[in-house]
Design a binder for these strands. Sequence first.
DNA 1: CGGAAGATTGATCAGTTTCAAGCTCCGTGG
DNA 2: CCACGGAGCTTGAAACTGATCAATCTTCCG
Lengths: 228, 228
Amino acid sequence: MAVDIKTVLAESQLFQGLTTRDYDKLASIAVSVEFRKGDTILTEGDPALGFYIVAEGLVKVFKVSVDGKEQLLHVFGEGEPVGEVPVFSGTHYPAHVVALTPAVLVYFARDEFTHMLNANPQLALNMLATLSQRLRRFAGVIEDLSLKDVSARLAKYLLSLAKKQQSTSVILPLSKGDLASSLGTISETLSRTLSRLRAAEVVEVARNRIDLLDVETLESIAAGERVL
Amino acid sequence: MAVDIKTVLAESQLFQGLTTRDYDKLASIAVSVEFRKGDTILTEGDPALGFYIVAEGLVKVFKVSVDGKEQLLHVFGEGEPVGEVPVFSGTHYPAHVVALTPAVLVYFARDEFTHMLNANPQLALNMLATLSQRLRRFAGVIEDLSLKDVSARLAKYLLSLAKKQQSTSVILPLSKGDLASSLGTISETLSRTLSRLRAAEVVEVARNRIDLLDVETLESIAAGERVL
DNA sequence: CGGAAGATTGATCAGTTTCAAGCTCCGTGG
DNA sequence: CCACGGAGCTTGAAACTGATCAATCTTCCG
């Protein structure tokens, strides 16, 4: 579980285009922390003194309702920053973060990082790009939750996963329960929806592997054109 | 409808803490544009060459479903930037923007603004703060859409409006239809929900003015504790 | 004043959740 | 090595929330 901090930083989009000096400085203020599967990394409402970059493993960012239901906002993997929002506005973490797998994260203290931002326009622009991408993604999630049904959201997710994994035979990186939370539904509904896709011979499901048999139909379901 | 650009810029959170020189520079690259009520300001999918700051009036930012239903993402007023996301990532506008009232917006070309960002760490930090606030807000919207019912979302909205307007007698800045879109529902459901709040003597509704009679109950509805 | 847009109300319908039961898989300990 | 037990997943039936369709009413402006 040992991780070379500089390697991780060098691979993160956030730190592209920086000088060697900047890397040294970053590495000198960074602290790596290990978490076991299921460990809480950040708690919503806690005062924010810094943020993390995921070096290894997967983490989920989520909100919790009064009766304990979760809504996943993100699943983050290697190179992605977590908990950076309150570095720039607000003083507390806006959501919970838990390790989905054993994970190593690199911590940056807020103040030290802010100093670096002031001196590095490129770093600030990278951070702006990262936040913008998230805003774009969130806007898409809001659109989907409000305007699309579960089968369209699931189809869209499967297609994006296939694209990322470069294969029509995708491996779910999440438990079905977490996937349901991420799609804004519950595991029962996800299960039924997958069954219907299976019955329609659009996908085949084996454990956590899903084969996309009919990508074209899946695309029209994702677009909300076909009802299923 | 004449607007003094420098005054608007000086009042915008985005431009706080800048030097006089910076203001002169900003004013020199800014162009003010007028829109009538209902005019389209930006169209989703159009290539993004710049962004606006609202100088006067209200605009709505929204997504549209295949069958024409709208989901509002934001309503922006004076001093707020619009369409800035693709300045930092992506190349096209991610949503539609339409004027809710007669409006004046100040346009900044992407390239010129990016140059300024490079030279002004404070400007970059301000922009980071703005985007962070939006992310925080979006995370809240996602949470609400997924985990709360319409009455909770409405109650929350009314309470936030009361806070902003410093009064328990609030004036809706939106049509009921737009408010419904902004809460992720449709006007019929909003109408019914308001009726129920009225029947429970929690609010009183007159035209576009709503009096909050029982703030405490409204708060427990917003928290999802009371069913209504 | 008249017409169009916006808002309300009623009846019905569809999609999703809830509650409950049973099943599968997998790690653990006997 | 197998049995046990628990977590995760699936399936069914019923309940519910919110959407749709349709009709009516109100408000706003020209």
